[in-house]
Design a protein around this nucleic acid. Sequence first.
DNA 1: CCTACCGATCGGTAGG
DNA 2: CCTACCGATCGGTAGG
Lengths: 195, 195
Amino acid sequence: MLPPDTSDLRTRILAEATRLFMMYGYNGISMREIAEAVGVSKAGLYYHFKDKEDLFLAILYESLGAMERITATARAAGPSARAQVGALVRALFAQPADQRAIIRLGQEIAHISPAARADFGRRYQEQFIGQIASLLGDAVARGELRAIEPSTLTWLLLGMMYPFFTANQEREQPPPEQAIDDLLMVFFAGAAIGG
Amino acid sequence: MLPPDTSDLRTRILAEATRLFMMYGYNGISMREIAEAVGVSKAGLYYHFKDKEDLFLAILYESLGAMERITATARAAGPSARAQVGALVRALFAQPADQRAIIRLGQEIAHISPAARADFGRRYQEQFIGQIASLLGDAVARGELRAIEPSTLTWLLLGMMYPFFTANQEREQPPPEQAIDDLLMVFFAGAAIGG
DNA sequence: CCTACCGATCGGTAGG
DNA sequence: CCTACCGATCGGTAGG
């Protein structure tokens, strides 16, 4: 005897809420609007999630789990930083826009309670940023990359992806494939010719 | 005979609103909270700005003006892309955090009316992004930079600065001076050793 | 009639 | 999970 399939609705709520939070930000969307998008009453949302912050945190932790799997896979993609970073960047770009939530929504954590923010910030650091920094730090130790602080390298790499992860429909998006190649080229070899 | 100095209060409103919008986003702060931070009544805000969106747009356009002056100055900083981009990046990092508003708040324009958004987006493109793309495109034409689409180069460069422009007090900030040097090193010469 | 606001409150909507 | 609501606060505006 299974319990009634409430997880289906929960999943749909998470999917719609992720999309809406991505588009309008934490304070830019109401629980009523999320409920209407799902086709459920507002009370239905509160049956599955304690409050708005709980729903938002569920999205952040789900996305963090996906990022963790991606960094682990990237690490196993080859022995070199080029292979590993290439796999990481391609996997991040391959994520559906909604699932790359964490990279943009991480900026939205200013809106949640200090305790939840501190807890999430720590796990975000350990399970995502720290994994990439570790990967890059190992490459520095092997002499593949310049002796730059691994956390700085991490933020430069993630930063280069930021503009391509916006939900901004106004801006012309360069073809993703070309943008990925250009990004990796600049990160590893630089934009300058000759040096 | 000069009129009474109304610009003083207007300037103070802009300064406080910029700081608060930067910290909490467009929908994360209320007109009441802005008024309280300034030490004025809410009606005082509405005397100087038609509505919340008008106040937000005044901030965006003021910041756009600052960015325009910075790109123009950077362009005159020297004949090479290194000199020009170096001046651009250093000037952007030298801006008070509040005045770098546009770089982060540009993501918030999803909240404003379509007409205002289209108008601002066009001028942002012409007066900021387009200026940087032009500067980089000229360097490509001179053979200083790789033949990468100038708009892609622009977004890669700006993206590298994004993580250092957050108001996030949780994260350890690398010393800005070192981070700037590292950023310019990676942008021009890449993170890899040997190539 | 004006500039430069204030105290109070409007109609609606927020999270719960 | 819904209908029916609440305390409070939202952006915006009234008369003076």
